[in-house]
Amino acid sequence: MSFDLSLIVESVPMMLAGIGITLKLLVVSGLLGLMLAICLLLMRISGKWYLNIPAQIYIYIFRGTPILVQIFIIYYGLPQFDAIRESIFWPILREPTGCAILALTLNTGAYVSEILRGGVLGVGKGLMEAGSALGLSSRQKFIYITAPIATRLALPAYSNDVISLLKSTALASTITIADMTGIARTIVADTYAPYEIYMSLAVIYMIFTFGIQKLFGAIERYLGRYTKREG
């Protein structure tokens, strides 16, 4: 057993070639997931049982099962039905990338909606009362009071979820996508040098994670620029 440095030098650029796919999975499913999460949040806080209960069931199912199972159900499972193979969604569902984005979106949406709900519940009662006293409608209160404060409150937890989404994108390699992990697995299959390859890939992911943390730290500081830091 030896630790081959030249192999690392050789393979890191190869793995970095997959960074575009990893980024695409992260950004596209992150944005779509956020939209889904906002829809689910609105359903949950609507106060109508026929909106609240379906949203709750959705969140329960998607948070209670492994993301790998969700990816496999969508990629391997859905083509079992002729109706899906003939539908207009087939061009997306035929591609592994489309399936991975769909699975990651559905999954992260469930988690993020709970994070956003935590933010909404954290908004002070007094502020809402102040809004009512000023004669704001409930929609105005949501847009001008709840949403900005909830965003600020939910941001730290949201950044953690973006990081776990980044880590979930690595699972795309299980459905033949050549993201960074997929490329690494191919290299390991050829060279049989798991330490060199996987550890350097781990470092790449850590740098990625660090970057996301810094980015969200900056956003947090920007959004919190009017709030005084309390002891």
Binding site: T169, A184, L201, M206
Partner: peptide
């Protein structure tokens, strides 16, 4: 906390 679980299992 910074690396994907699948990578750790493979490693």
């Amino acid at each position: 906390r910074g690396t994907p679980p699948i990578l750790i299992i493979l490693l």
